[in-house]
Each structure stands twice: as structure tokens, then as C-alpha cells.
């Protein structure tokens, strides 16, 4: 597929919400080992609120949908995660069309801008054991897909796998920013909870994209 309809994107966000909620115990387990243990419950609260909002509202344009999704996360999560995952959806909003369908190039640019906005705001870069370790490779895969004229499904397949690998790679990293930096070397061998959440979101996006 070369263009993605806003209704499908809405379903992808709903699926991401279900995926995060279902994985709350796992996220909590990982964050208890590495941070203050509230990442899982915070993410579940945010994405459950997002799911409810998507259920009761219709969307006709990409920018309206993604902006509302980001705001819902900021509103319901609080703390650092609310801002970070809210920024993922709001940061690149200017790259999206005020229309019902969207090209892969626009989608890739949108997520790339979101990633850059998180880097700026969080004063962080990939390689520091944060959600960026999953997000950056994922958006780079989308961008590569767009530049080489891939089908949207294929680009999201590569994005999901890149995010998964990124989350896995975060295990070997030392923490330099955020809460887990206080735990320093003891975090080696453990993945970053935010990177896992990010890979789950891209997994849900891909699975919904190829479902009938």
C-alpha cells in the first residue's frame, strides 16, 4: 500500500493502546529493576485513556488524530513519560497533512520530527539507554522505506524489527540520563523500559497494518 487512511491509523493507535495495557506487568517488572517502577502503570493509564478517547471520537484528518492522541497521553500520564510519549505524537505534527490519507514519506518525516523533538526536549541521544534507542532505528527504517519506495506495510515491518533490536541493544548500555542513571552500572544487562514500550507500539502498528 502506498497511502494510509486515517481510519487505519486510528486502528493502529487502538492496537498500540491494547498492546501497552496488556504488557503492563512486564513493563512494571523491567522498570522495578531499573527505575522507580512506575513506568508500566503510567503507560497503561495513558494508553487506556487514549483508547477510550479513540473509541468515542471520529477523526477525518491525520494531523487532528495524531495531535489528539499526543495530548491525551500528556493529559493522563504526567511525569516524564507523559511528556516523552506525548512529544512522540505531537513533535512532528506539522509534517502531517490535514487530510484523510497520508504517504509513507509524510509518515516517516512525522515520526522523524517527533524523535528529534524528544532529543531536544530530553537533552538525550540514542545510545544512552532511553526510549530513543528503539525509536531512532525505527524512524530511520521508515525513512529508508520511504526513500526506496517501499510499500507501507514493509516499511513498518522493518521499523518494528529495528525497534525490537534497539530495545534489545539497550541492555548493554550504561544509563546517562533520566531516573535510571542513579543506578549506573547495575543497569547493565537490563533493557530500558521506555525502549520496550516503543518497540511494543511499533509491533502493534505493524500487526494492525497487516491484519484484515
Amino acid at each position: 500500500m502506498k497511502r494510509l487512511h486515517v481510519i487505519k491509523m486510528k486502528k493502529m493507535l487502538e492496537n498500540a493502546s491494547r498492546m501497552i495495557a496488556a504488557n503492563e506487568p512486564y513493563l512494571t517488572e523491567v522498570d522495578t529493576a531499573i527505575g522507580d517502577g512506575d513506568h508500566g502503570t503510567g503507560m497503561k493509564r495513558g494508553f487506556s485513556a487514549l483508547y477510550k478517547m479513540l473509541e468515542r471520537q471520529e477523526f477525518y484528518e491525520w494531523d487532528t488524530l495524531c495531535g489528539a492522541a499526543g495530548i491525551e497521553l500528556v493529559k493522563s500520564m504526567g511525569g516524564a513519560s507523559g511528556v516523552i510519549f506525548g512529544t512522540l505524537f505531537i513533535g512532528g505534527i506539522d509534517r502531517l497533512p490535514h487530510e484523510s490519507s497520508c504517504s509513507l514519506t509524510e509518515i516517516a518525516d512525522y515520526f522523524m520530527e517527533g524523535e528529534k523533538a524528544i532529543e531536544r526536549r530530553g537533552k538525550a541521544k540514542a545510545g544512552q539507554k532511553t526510549m530513543l534507542d528503539a525509536l531512532l532505528p525505527a524512524v530511520e527504517a521508515l525513512k529508508k522505506g520511504a526513500d526506496t519506495g517501499m510499500e507501507i506495510e514493509d516499511a513498518f515491518f522493518y521499523a518494528y524489527n529495528a525497534a525490537l533490536k534497539g530495545a534489545e541493544d539497550s541492555k548493554g548500555m550504561e544509563s546517562k540520563v533520566g531516573r535510571s542513571k542513579n543506578f549506573r552500572e547495575s543497569v547493565l544487562g537490563l533493557p530500558d523500559p521506555g525502549a520496550i514500550s516503543t518497540s511494543l507500539i511499533f509491533k502493534a502498528f505493524y500487526e494492525e497494518l497487516v491484519s484484515r
Binding site: 495530548i71 500528556v74 493529559k75 493522563s76 504526567g78 511525569g79 511528556v83
Partner: peptide, 10 residues
């Protein structure tokens, strides 16, 4: 926000 927690951006 809550005890010792920042309020949310919204």
C-alpha cells in the same frame, strides 16, 4: 502534581 511530583503539561 502529586506529592513530590511535577504537574502534567496539560
Amino acid at each position: 502534581g502529586d506529592f513530590n511530583c511535577a504537574p502534567n503539561a496539560y
